[in-house]
Design a protein around this nucleic acid. Structure first.
Lengths: 260, 260
DNA sequence: GAGTGGTCTAGACCACGCG
DNA sequence: GCGTGGTCTAGACCACTCA
């Protein structure tokens, strides 16, 4: 049968398992190829990707091999399977878990049925990357960045004060109006307006004391303990695309984490 | 062939896919059976479980079905696969990732090569569960519990102040000496001495201000911001077996989390 | 009823660890 | 060289969705 042994790079004539220089299992190579298509935007967020059988014949491998590749993509939340319907490119919009990356929940009642957060954009301007921001985003110092400062409130209570830094090259034209008016998660807006899809993030969490300005914006006494959450969010290929520093009030909410 | 269709509960005579009252895929039933054996202590932490072929013939299913069951157990960290050697019951000891559940890392240098934490046991006594502790541990108010208070220091710097509550029934005879002298993670000691294996945990994280006593124990000024980490750890079947309240200094360390 | 993902099998071969 | 987990295939059937 035409199926390639895992080492074979030079497929005879069909769509080859190409450009896989180093050894890896076939399904990993297939996964890489699907990843390339995702990254290239061949299928948009929310759309279905080709069926397993389609991909199997496209890549000249068995369905089981494609399945294992997709299994891993699904485990990484890059793709969502729906039995009977197909496999879909994951998106921060329409994902029944809104706010996939926000782990701050009300103390009573895990679900957020209190409606979406109210956003106040305090600042949205183009500036130059500090050394620290440049390092986090993989830029050069004084490269262009967009900086946003905002407050999120729940039921009228200001709860989160955030500073966001984005690479200027990828977010040309981002405006305060866009940040304020878009319905749904900010990351969904980034997908729709800028084609930037956040796929993974790392957070560093600390306890800090509110300074005078922070305290005023969050309407707490100066010196109140706040949760400091520094997040770097990545697109495909572990390319950092956002640095975010959040200060969370945790008097009526907590950061919820699962360990296993 | 003898393989059972997924609905068939009444295996003819071999080791049956028994006691699987409601419908579920075969591999889920197999997973459940393996889980029962793990829970019953049929194989001890660190030991190898039977090979996939063994289990396949024991349960009268194909190797692939056993494989999928074990895949899920491995994904849940209940079991560790090692190619060429076998599949082993996960353990908190000898796990190259010491402190699997402790996410506090030094700001510079992710790895803990500073050696293990120095433990000071401040208190270790049997007492009665408060309403709150009882609720967290699924006990009745005033059931027996063991309470431990300790400080963990790194390189001489007191960093973590913890209160731990354990069900008295499962931890009879736990002593301050045991808590202090055991080499390795506390959870490894729980495995060895009490046969209790923590498998999963949930944490609620807040920023709080140190009160006078806490400040003294951690050698920080009163009112300093500290990270409050409340953890409930579970054994098999989501049975809660530990409540732990930690206060972390985050002046030179941070709580590291990965989102995806 | 056609199409999709989900389960299950049986058999082949590969990579690894160890005696 | 044997036994283990890891990969890959081919084909069958099941469960779900939707026209």
């Amino acid at each position: 049968m035409p199926a390639l042994p895992p080492f074979d790079d030079a497929a005879p004539d069909a769509v080859p398992v190409q450009a896989a220089p180093s050894f890896s299992p076939l399904y990993q190579q297939i996964k890489g190829l699907i990843l390339q298509s995702l990254q290239a935007g061949e299928w948009k967020p929310g759309e279905a990707i080709p069926s397993e059988m389609d991909l199997a014949s496209r890549f000249r491998v068995s369905q089981g091999t494609v399945r294992k590749a997709i299994d891993e993509l699904a485990a990484e939340n890059l793709v969502v399977r729906r039995q009977g319907k197909g496999t879909f490119v994951a998106t921060h919009a329409e994902q029944h878990v809104q706010y996939r990356f926000l782990k701050l929940v009300p103390d009573s009642g895990d679900r957020d049925e209190e409606g979406p957060a109210e956003r106040s954009i305090l600042e949205c301007r183009r500036t130059r990357a500090s050394a620290e921001v440049a390092r986090a985003l993989g830029l050069r110092t004084s490269d262009a960045v967009v900086q946003v400062r905002r407050v999120l409130a729940f039921a009228g209570v200001p709860t989160i004060l955030e500073d966001i830094w984005l690479p200027g090259s990828a977010f040309k034209g981002l405006s305060a109006e866009q940040m304020a008016d878009f319905q749904g998660p900010t990351y969904a807006m980034f997908e729709l307006e800028f084609g930037v899809r956040m796929v993974r993030a790392e957070e560093k969490i600390r306890a800090v004391a509110a300074d005078a300005q922070q305290a005023q914006l969050l309407r707490v006494p100066t010196g109140s303990p706040l949760l400091s959450v520094e997040r770097i969010a990545f697109t495909y290929n572990d390319v950092p695309m956002e640095l975010r520093r959040g200060l969370y009030r945790t008097d009526n909410r907590h950061y919820r984490n699962e360990l296993s």
